[in-house]
Design a protein around this nucleic acid. Sequence first.
DNA 1: GTTAGCACTCATCTGCTTCGAGTGCTAATT
DNA 2: AATTAGCACTCGAAGCAGATGAGTGCTAAC
Lengths: 344, 344
Amino acid sequence: MELDERKITILKAIIKNYMDTGEPVGSRTISKYVDNKWSSATIRNEMSDLEEMGYIVQPHTSAGRIPSDKGYRFYVDQITLEKDSEAAEVQELMIQRIDRLESVLKKLAKLLAHDTNYAALISGPRYQENKLKFIQLSRVDADKLLIVTVLEGNLIKNSIVHVDDVPNDEELLNMNILLNSNLNGLTIGEINLDVISRMKQQAGSHAGVVDLVLEQVAEVIRADSEDLQIYTSGATNIFKYPELSDNQKASELLQTLEHTELLKDLVDTGDGDGGTGIQVYIGEESPVQAMRDCSVVTANYELGEGIRGTIGIIGPKRMDYEKVLKTLRTLMVQLETAFKKEER
Amino acid sequence: MELDERKITILKAIIKNYMDTGEPVGSRTISKYVDNKWSSATIRNEMSDLEEMGYIVQPHTSAGRIPSDKGYRFYVDQITLEKDSEAAEVQELMIQRIDRLESVLKKLAKLLAHDTNYAALISGPRYQENKLKFIQLSRVDADKLLIVTVLEGNLIKNSIVHVDDVPNDEELLNMNILLNSNLNGLTIGEINLDVISRMKQQAGSHAGVVDLVLEQVAEVIRADSEDLQIYTSGATNIFKYPELSDNQKASELLQTLEHTELLKDLVDTGDGDGGTGIQVYIGEESPVQAMRDCSVVTANYELGEGIRGTIGIIGPKRMDYEKVLKTLRTLMVQLETAFKKEER
DNA sequence: GTTAGCACTCATCTGCTTCGAGTGCTAATT
DNA sequence: AATTAGCACTCGAAGCAGATGAGTGCTAAC
């Protein structure tokens, strides 16, 4: 059977109506929706065909139809086809200043959740290669040193350590030079025993401090590459959609959103394909079990120097794909622009 | 009427039973619970009295009784009286290393939620006086400066700024000395025009950089004192308690837990009274509207140098107060010990 | 090919009944 | 005087029957 013009119109009408109401939609509703262009009986016949073809389903015999995953998929593919040409209209979004990327991302997630009325998710930037760029030791207390570690991509980490034999100012200066000249540009794998023993030798009486510092640096780098940070926002928006908010489902979904490790399949896709790819997972397509009744839209951002992460929207299958896709596309542009500007 | 021995026994029995089951408890249940020491009829009479006195209520005529807020209050007061003498048994909790206080607190909340099966909340440390302790400028790129700001209490903040006229290494060294000698020990209020103009004068050709730095420092301090950080964990645990998990209530509660600003009344109490005070809010006693069906237990931690915050547990009114109080007490001790050790 | 008409299905709603846990009260017992 | 047995009563929960109505599929007419 063919998906002719009329079937497409009807399918779209069903999806649109269902998006609005969340209720199964019947033949008369559609008939009215198309200004009685076709009678309800005709619509019924077409619906019967559409059901046979798998685009719509009946929750039970005497109810209207709702779109199936396949139906949504068709709709989404249509949208992306149509709208890809249309230039993303840039709304004024307030990304004023990237003071701390992390906090900007959190705010962004909040904004996004509030704007769309769906749940938003954002993964903190992962840095492809954790190369050391800069290390600085300073004394902050009589017996404490502050270690500032800057990684490639301007990711900054601090730690404070207690030392027993505190170097004096001049020794500190030398040690900073020592550290930077030996370590800059290295990844953690490249800091081997050879490098370490050479440094210790050069450090002389303060070899112990070198050990401490290296331990901290290793910790910092490891922590960063292991802990994938994922922030969520607006999780409770799901209560706005009856089909998701029965107790069983809501609980499961919210629990999943609370546990970062369950979400990593959503943000881990950025490996191969390029930066701004947008994925739409409808129902069973989702890699996350608890989201089989939802749709998930994810977008990968990439902010130069290999800093990349993922932004996602989680909502009911009847989400407003058009709006979400557009919002995400716009956001990507803005985020990258803002970052470039800051970067200069 | 007097709360005699028997009434107290019965009241406690009702509360204990209700804690286990979450169902209203009847006279026969209690009779069995006390090994038929008294018949159900006697219990009924006593229950009638207890109801009149306001310690228990009937959800409806033909149901058993459940404790009222007043009943819980009595119970909790009893516990704290009895157990205050008992030394808190220190379980081995893994607070290995305070590398970043923030991340430790987050983990703690997670642990706590998991341990108790209630929702946990933790407020990031607030610093009483944001005095500057140390500032350091370094060049990290051809045209970018890293500003590290350490506040009293070893709170470290970083920012990276772009500058057009980058000072050379020697100038940077001088500028660091200039910044530290002028600003150390000052609060933001104390950095007035007088100080600023004096510094600019001394900075000579790089007065612009001073401006940039001061702007960042001000931002850092302001951001820290304004944004009260509150982390929650295990929010979805509330689905384990039927009396909280009907859709309306669960949604409201979860929404509240998502919005930091609604929680600040819970953590803001630390003003007057000393460090380790533990508060128990039962039902209507809670300062937060959405928690009128819950009980909330909060504890204030104080980690020297005026760093203080709050840890809280949110659960059903029939929470295991004994366990929660004990856990929190233990935690406070551990947290302070771990911090002291790190501090040395 | 389209549509009107009609019998049929089935989830939802309403009212009714039954069931039983639990109460309060009274009278008997200790 | 305190305790207890006994009994009538209350009321939510659960189950069932019928009414309702939205929506369908099918057939026959246009």
